[in-house]
Amino acid sequence: MGAKVKNLKTLGEQSATGMDDIRGILVVEVTAGSDASKFLQANDVILSYNYRKTNNLNDLSEAQKSVIGDKTEVVIFRNQKEVKKWIELKGEK
């Protein structure tokens, strides 16, 4: 997808992102020009993918496998608020 991600799991990461709890997938790095760069930024937290909560990397993997079609919704936490993005997958399930 073009992003380096990890489980959000420390109080420091929670504080740095402004999250209310330790949950979600922390975006560590986004490759410039990648598909991910169209909707993700470093320090975003992915809260859901394809209408499924993503509290850890396993949840994200399962949610990616469950997509039907070529578009899905991603909910991220950025700048102290939740943001919904529709993304096109281009056959990259």
Rank of each mutant, 00 (worst) to 15 (best):
Q14L: 07
G24C: 14
N43K: 14
Y51C: 06
Q64A: 05
S48L: 08
G91K: 06
I22Q: 15
T10N: 09
K4N: 12
Q80G: 10
K6H: 09
S34W: 10
T72R: 13
D44R: 00
V5P: 04
I68V: 13
V30S: 02
I76Q: 02
I76V: 08
A63K: 00
Y49W: 11
K84L: 03
F39Y: 09
R23E: 15
R23S: 15
S34G: 08
K65P: 05
Q80Y: 13
K93M: 09
K71R: 11
E13A: 14
L40W: 00
T10R: 14
G33W: 05
A36Y: 02
K65W: 01
V75A: 08
E92V: 01
K90H: 08
L47V: 05
S15H: 12
L47W: 05
E73D: 14
N58M: 03
D70C: 12
V67D: 11
N43A: 09
Q64F: 03
A16D: 08
V28C: 07
K81F: 03
V83P: 01
L8R: 03
N7W: 12
V45W: 04
G69P: 11
N56A: 12
D70A: 09
Q64L: 04
E82T: 08
W86N: 08
E62I: 07
V28M: 13
E88D: 06
L89V: 02
A16S: 06
K65N: 10
A42H: 11
V83N: 00
S34V: 07
N58T: 01
G69A: 06
R23P: 15
A36G: 07
V67W: 11
D59E: 04
N55S: 12
Y51I: 04
Q41S: 13
L40N: 00
V27W: 10
T72L: 08
Y49K: 04
K65R: 05
L8G: 01
T17R: 10
D35R: 09
I25S: 13
F77Y: 06
G2N: 07
K6Q: 15
S66Q: 06
A36Q: 09
Q14H: 12
G33Q: 05
D20T: 10
G12C: 06
V83K: 01
V67H: 14
E29I: 11
E88A: 10
G91V: 02
V75M: 04
F77A: 02
L8M: 14
Q41F: 05
S66W: 12
S66I: 06
N7Q: 10
V27T: 09
N58A: 00
Q80V: 02
G12K: 07
K81C: 07
S15I: 14
A3T: 12
G2W: 03
E92A: 06
I22A: 12
R52G: 06
V45K: 11
G69I: 10
K84A: 00
A36H: 05
K84M: 06
V83I: 07
E82N: 06
V75G: 01
F39R: 00
R23T: 15
L60R: 00
A16C: 08
